[in-house]
Simulated assay, not measured.
Amino acid sequence: MQHQSIDHRRVASSAAWLRNYYVIRFAVSAAWVVLAFTVARQAPMIAAVMLVAYPAWDALANFIDAKRSGGLGRNRSQLLNVVVSGLTAIAVAVALGRGMNSVLAVFGVWAVLAGLFQLATAIRRWSAFGAQWAMILSGAQSALAGAFFVTMASSPAVPGIADIAPYAAFGAFYFLVSAIWLTVGNARRGSTSAAI
């Protein structure tokens, strides 16, 4: 009984961290989207900084989450996401000198890879926490959006940061849904545990 209680507390603590992590990811992504549709549309330098910062933030966030969730060695999909997102931030900085079509192509390749890594992470976490269906959908949609970005990058039209913002908006939405779903799941588990 004591062992079960310790396991329950450990799972509850990890679930609380994951919920808070999703809330932070939602808040940062939502703020990025608002800036992309407002200030950054008229300020190329701000847009450039934001385009580099987005994958860099993803790398940092995945690193912190993986370290908090057992380390990078136990979270290989997040380790790969850290590496790919970090390299993407550098690639975006380089691509900015070649034009927004190149930036969109880089974002497209990154979205495909990051989406697949996120999908793998969510599937791995499903058995421990549940409430990962939104992250699975998010990963799959990210991969599809990335393929669309790559196709769009080869068109003669010059894209802008506002063309990438809907991708970030969907990501923010899925993080919010996941945070809410985990909160509901934790409350149910808590009430069940109290009843026992």
Rank of each mutant, 00 (worst) to 15 (best):
L116Q: 13
F117C: 14
F117D: 05
Q118M: 09
Q118I: 14
Q118K: 12
Q118T: 15
L119C: 06
A120E: 13
A120H: 11
A120L: 12
T121F: 15
T121L: 13
W126D: 07
W126A: 05
S127G: 05
S127F: 12
A128Q: 09
A128L: 10
A128K: 12
A128G: 11
A128I: 09
F129A: 02
G130Y: 02
G130M: 10
A131D: 04
A131H: 07
A131G: 04
A131I: 01
A131N: 05
A131R: 07
A131L: 06
Q132A: 08
Q132V: 02
Q132I: 02
A134S: 04
M135F: 11
I136W: 02
I136K: 01
S138T: 04
G139A: 05
A140M: 09
S142M: 08
S142W: 11
A143G: 11
A143L: 09
L144F: 14
L144D: 12
L144W: 10
L144A: 14
L144G: 05
L144T: 08
A145Q: 10
A145I: 06
A145C: 13
G146P: 08
G146A: 11
G146K: 13
G146M: 06
A147C: 04
A147V: 03
F148V: 10
F148P: 07
F149K: 06
F149M: 08
V150W: 07
V150P: 02
V150R: 15
V150L: 13
T151E: 12
T151R: 15
M152Y: 14
M152S: 13
A153Q: 03
A153P: 13
S154N: 14
S155W: 07
P156C: 08
P156I: 09
P156Y: 07
A157G: 05
A157E: 07
V158G: 00
V158P: 03
P159C: 00
P159F: 02
P159N: 01
P159K: 01
P159D: 04
G160W: 01
I161V: 03
I161A: 02
A162T: 03
A162W: 03
A162H: 08
A162P: 00
A162F: 01
D163W: 05
D163Q: 14
I164P: 01
A165C: 09
A165M: 05
A165T: 00
A165Q: 10
P166N: 13
A168R: 08
A169H: 12
A169F: 06
A169W: 00
F170V: 09
G171P: 01
G171R: 03
G171A: 11
G171E: 01
A172E: 01
Y174L: 09
F175T: 03
F175R: 03
F175H: 15
L176R: 04
L176I: 00
L176K: 04
V177R: 00
V177D: 00
S178F: 02
A179C: 14
A179W: 03
A179H: 09
I180Y: 04
W181P: 00
W181F: 08
W181S: 04
W181N: 04
W181Y: 08
L182Y: 06
T183I: 10
V184H: 09
G185E: 08
G185R: 13
G185F: 03
G185S: 13
N186A: 11
A187L: 14
R188Y: 11
R188K: 15
R188S: 12
R188P: 08
R189T: 12
G190C: 06
S191Q: 14
S191N: 14
S191C: 13
